[in-house]
């Protein structure tokens, strides 16, 4: 991890007005990210995706975002104007969305979309873009890149779509990749291939990675550091390898609730929620 962090987030708050009151999706989240793999875990609704979107300035209307500090390599992301975002999104930060269906353009062929992304950010020739796109599809373990290149998103299965999406996000070689449940739609064996690709990019190119997941097994085995979110807050931050020794009762309960192949239990521990966790 280098000295100056790539991304700094301090006191990030996101609230959605609705039904006559504010729903705080993210409350006072602070962390710094270097060139490492940072995992964010938590149950659905704990604010993981919203945190990712806030970093990219993509919180949907009517969400309200505030932060004491939100910087990427010294650039204040909170102060960026719409046209300035163009040089950041996709180029310096990319996000792999939870559901590839909504993130790929349904009427443009996969290959075209990936090439377009490359040419937008890297300004190469069409030939070069095509070669890079095919390489990237190959890198995400798509068996027949030439075939998928000419497919439309709806002609791909969930797992294929997810991989095409990852290929598109990685082709511009961003400094920071936010991957929101990138492997949930994938089978376990494919999952590990995709994780391998991400791993390589972090190790070789020094990319920063925020890996959002609800799967503790994956996060603890793949990431360097883990943030545990509950009700919009970070309740615990620890080294991924030290997750088994987590201190927060919520983290411990989350670990205990998952069935394990190697440690059979007669009964799984269920979580008794303590209102104090939200304080």
């Amino acid at each position: 991890m280098s000295a100056a962090p790539l991304l700094e987030v301090e006191a990030l708050d996101v609230a959605f007005p609705g039904r006559g009151r504010l729903t705080h999706a993210v409350r006072g989240v602070s962390f710094a990210l270097g060139r490492e793999r940072l995992g964010i875990v938590g149950e659905s609704g704990s604010g993981k995706s919203t945190t990712g979107r806030a970093i990219l300035g993509l919180v949907p209307w009517p969400g309200m975002v505030s932060a004491k500090r939100l910087t990427l390599g010294g650039i204040d992301l909170m102060a960026l104007r719409p046209h300035e975002w163009l040089g950041i999104r996709g180029r310096r930060i990319s996000m792999v969305m939870q559901d590839p269906k909504y993130s790929l353009n349904p009427v443009v062929k996969i290959g075209e979309q990936i090439m377009e992304t490359y040419r937008l950010h890297r300004r190469g020739s069409r030939r070069e873009a095509r070669r890079r796109a095919l390489d990237m599809l190959d890198a995400v373990r798509i068996r027949d890149p030439d075939l998928v290149f000419h497919r439309y998103p709806h002609q791909l299965s969930g797992g294929m779509g997810q991989r095409a999406m990852i290929a598109m996000m990685l082709i511009a070689e961003p400094d920071l990749l936010i991957a929101d449940e990138p492997t949930s739609a994938l089978d376990v064996t494919v999952q590990n291939h995709v994780l391998g690709i991400l791993d390589e990019l972090v190790a070789e190119r020094g990319m920063g990675l925020i890996f959002i997941s609800h799967n503790l097994t994956i996060v603890s085995s793949f990431c360097d550091r883990v943030l545990v979110m509950y009700g919009g807050r970070i309740v615990e931050e620890c080294a991924a390898s030290g997750l088994a020794a987590a201190r927060h009762p919520y983290t411990r309960a989350l670990i205990a609730a998952a069935p394990s192949i190697d440690r059979p239990k007669a009964e799984l521990t269920t979580i008794t929620r303590d209102p104090a966790w939200l304080q």
């Binding site: 376990v188 999952q191 590990n192 391998g196 097994t217 994956i218 085995s221 793949f222 192949i261 190697d262």
Partner: peptide, 8 residues
């Protein structure tokens, strides 16, 4: 399958 289920 077993190896993959145990994590990355």
């Amino acid at each position: 399958l077993l190896r993959a289920s145990r994590g990355y």
